[in-house]
C-alpha cells in the first residue's frame, strides 16, 4: 500500500540522517526491500550490555503504521535479558497492545535500548524453555502478559 511505503521512506531518511546514539540502519539492504529492515544496536556504555552488539529485525505489513511492525532480535547475539527469549522474541507492550500509529522504528529502537539499559542482571525469562518450544514464529501472534516495567 502506498501510504505504508511513503511512511517507511520518510522514516528511513530520518533515521539515516539523524540516528539515535547506538542505533544504525543498514540502508543499502533496506532499499532493496522496504518491508524488512535490519537495525544494529549497541549496548549502552555503563550498562550490563556495554560493548555488545545486537541486531533487530523489523517486518512491516501493508497496514503499517496502523498495524505494529513485527520486531525481534536476530543473529548470533541475542541479549540475555528477562524480557528477551532465546529465539529473539521480545516482551514489550508497544510492540502489540500499546502500539500507536504515531510510533516509529526510531521510537521502537529507543524503547528497546532503554529496556536493555535498565537491566541489572543478565538472565532469560523464567518461562523461556517452554515458550521457545511452543510459540509461533511470529512474536505478534503471542498474547503477551506484560508485567514488571522496571527491567
Amino acid at each position: 500500500m502506498a501510504s505504508m511505503e511513503k511512511r517507511l521512506q520518510k522514516e528511513l531518511l530520518a533515521l539515516t540522517k539523524d540516528p539515535p546514539v547506538g542505533v544504525k540502519v543498514n540502508t543499502d539492504a533496506i532499499t532493496k526491500n522496504l518491508a524488512e529492515w535490519t537495525v544494529d544496536l549497541e549496548g549502552a556504555p555503563g550498562t550490563v550490555f556495554e560493548g555488545e552488539n545486537f541486531q533487530l529485525q523489523f517486518k512491516f505489513g501493508s497496514r503499517y503504521p496502523f498495524d505494529s511492525p513485527q520486531v525481534m532480535f536476530i543473529g548470533p547475539n541475542i541479549p540475555l535479558h528477562p524480557h528477551v527469549y532465546s529465539n529473539g522474541h521480545i516482551c514489550l507492550s508497544i510492540l502489540t497492545d500499546d502500539w500507536s500509529p504515531a510510533l516509529s522504528v526510531q521510537s521502537v529502537c529507543l524503547s528497546v535500548v532503554s529496556m536493555l539499559s535498565s537491566c541489572k542482571e543478565k538472565k532469560r525469562p523464567p518461562d523461556n524453555a517452554l515458550y521457545v518450544k511452543t510459540c509461533s514464529k511470529n512474536p505478534k501472534k503471542t498474547r503477551w502478559w506484560y508485567h514488571d516495567d522496571s527491567v
Partner: peptide
C-alpha cells in the same frame, strides 16, 4: 515532544 515526521503525515 511528538516526533515531527510521524505527526506530519496525520
Amino acid at each position: 515532544g511528538f516526533p515531527q515526521f510521524t505527526i506530519e503525515d496525520f
